[in-house]
């Protein structure tokens, strides 16, 4: 597709879609994982750091104090499931499935019609291969939590009225979302 290769302004990453952040304030597809932060339903100063790795779907869920989540019993806990749900809202099911290399039965059946998997279908497809808990869950938790804090810090950075010419490479594409 020559237009893609010869354009300075192709949109490589679509913008995130708006979603409610109360339950899952942070979701990202990064470092080869779907990872994020899920607020605890019972304790407002506790959050769960959850992740699923691309390819083998190895999962982890621990609190911000790096204690294991009590809901992990050989499979995805509610936090991981919530994370998948919000990721699908934010990025769309197709992008999440592609990043995780998850093939849903539905997508395979409807080959060619580009069926977009739902969060339930994705979760089911990943659970079906009986994924293991991540071996380096503790380290991953630390990394993800510090990425979440870094993400929050963007709100604290001041605005400026000095022009940023480089932003011309990042046109808004609101109307084609």
């Amino acid at each position: 597709m020559p237009m893609w290769e010869e354009s300075s302004l192709v949109r490589v990453v679509p913008s995130a879609r708006p979603r409610k952040l109360a339950k899952v304030p942070f979701v990202e597809l990064a470092d080869g994982r779907l990872q994020g932060v899920v607020s605890s339903g019972s304790d407002i100063s506790r959050v769960y750091v959850s992740s699923v790795a691309a390819g083998d779907f190895a999962f982890a869920c621990r609190t911000n104090n790096n204690r294991p989540c009590g809901g992990l019993r050989g499979g995805f806990c509610n936090h991981v499931t919530a994370l998948v749900g919000e990721a699908v809202l934010q990025y769309g099911g197709a992008r999440v499935a592609r990043y995780l290399q998850a093939e849903t039965a539905e997508a395979a059946d409807a080959a060619g019609t580009a069926a977009v998997p739902t969060a339930q279908q994705l979760t089911a497809a990943m659970s079906a291969v009986r994924p293991q808990q991540s071996a380096d869950g503790q380290a991953v938790t630390g990394q993800v939590f510090s990425r979440f804090l870094r993400h929050l810090a963007y709100l604290e950075l001041p605005a400026t009225t000095a022009p940023l010419p480089e932003m011309h490479w990042f046109p808004t594409a609101g109307a084609v979302a």
Partner: peptide
């Protein structure tokens, strides 16, 4: 031209 810019979390859109 007059400009204004700000860093933002990726979930702040629209």
């Amino acid at each position: 031209r007059a400009s204004v810019s700000a860093p933002k979390p990726d979930t702040v859109v629209g």
